[in-house]
Amino acid sequence: MVEPQRMTDKDDDRPTRRDYLGLCAHGSLGMGAAAIVWPVARYLSPPDTPSSPETPATVAVCENHALTRKQAHFARYRNRPVVVLRLDDGSLRAFDATCPHLGCTVRLDPDRNTLRCPCHGAEFDPATGAPERGPAVHPLLPLIVQVRHDTIVVGT
């Protein structure tokens, strides 16, 4: 006579009561952790500061005649470094001077006629900001530059 098969936990693929309670316990632990981690992460990430009227939309860099050809001036615009330079043909260019590769500030190399990042050697075309040599793949961000009352102004 064959002994009737006993039902054990392992014979059944359905979750047992123990599995279910374990899942509930782990789930509530996870949610508890998330309830702490989420506000802490939000707390640590700095709030967006709305651009108040005190934040100027433009920045005066220098007098127009002070910037000669193949020369660059640096300024800070909206909390970022800005490079303003005069090309060979006398026209002005302005770029966000933050290197798109790893964030250093680019310099003008007048002898080689490039904007060069001192950190990892990326080079950019001073006329367009396009990457020419080195590890950078993205161009420098161009900014609006104009002359107002004989002063070079970056921004609109």
Binding site: A41, L44, S45, P46, T98, H101, L102, G103, C104, T105, C119
Partner: peptide, 20 residues
């Protein structure tokens, strides 16, 4: 600058981590 940029280039969470 470099530390911030390296963090920033982590996919997904990078910009948030760099801001923190």
């Amino acid at each position: 600058q470099v530390g911030g940029a390296i963090l920033q280039s982590v996919p997904g969470v990078g910009p948030g981590l760099a801001d923190i």
